[in-house]
Simulated assay, not measured.
Amino acid sequence: MEKKTSITFLEYLDKIKNPDEAQYNYAEQIKEVKIVNNFISKFSGVVFVADFQTGTYPFMGEGIKDVLGHPLEAIQEGGMNFIAYYLQVPKLIDNKCMEEQFKLYSNLKDKPLADIRFKMNAPITDGERKTRYFSQHIKFILKSNDGHPLGFYGYCTKVPIAEEKKVTQHIEFLNKENNEWQVYSSLEFYLEVDENKLLSKREIEILKWISEGLSSEAIATKLYISVHTVRTHRKNMLKRTNSTNSADLIRYGIEHKLI
Score class of each variant (00 low, 15 high):
residue 237 M to N: 02
residue 3 K to N: 00
residue 67 V to E: 08
residue 24 Y to G: 15
residue 171 I to C: 02
residue 165 K to W: 12
residue 66 D to G: 07
residue 52 F to E: 00
residue 120 M to A: 05
residue 194 D to Y: 15
residue 118 F to N: 08
residue 166 K to W: 15
residue 206 I to S: 02
residue 33 V to G: 00
residue 24 Y to M: 09
residue 74 A to S: 12
residue 91 K to H: 07
residue 49 V to L: 08
residue 64 I to K: 00
residue 189 F to T: 01
residue 243 S to Y: 09
residue 112 P to C: 05
residue 141 I to H: 00
residue 30 I to S: 08
residue 199 L to M: 09
residue 132 R to V: 06
residue 246 S to F: 11
residue 18 N to W: 01
residue 235 K to L: 15
residue 185 S to E: 07
residue 36 V to P: 04
residue 226 S to V: 03
residue 88 Q to K: 08
residue 245 N to Q: 04
residue 196 N to R: 11
residue 127 G to C: 10
residue 185 S to C: 12
residue 259 I to P: 02
residue 25 N to Q: 12
residue 220 A to V: 06
residue 236 N to A: 06
residue 144 S to Y: 08
residue 75 I to W: 07
residue 105 Y to L: 03
residue 241 T to G: 01
residue 235 K to F: 15
residue 106 S to A: 13
residue 229 T to A: 09
residue 210 I to E: 01
residue 103 K to V: 04
residue 187 L to P: 03
residue 244 T to I: 03
residue 198 L to K: 01
residue 182 Q to I: 15
residue 34 K to R: 14
residue 9 F to E: 05
residue 59 F to R: 03
residue 126 D to A: 10
residue 232 T to W: 11
residue 50 A to I: 08
residue 89 V to K: 07
residue 159 V to C: 01
residue 151 G to A: 06
residue 240 R to K: 06
residue 216 S to E: 11
residue 164 E to D: 13
residue 120 M to F: 02
residue 202 R to N: 10
residue 222 K to L: 14
residue 146 D to N: 11
residue 123 P to G: 06
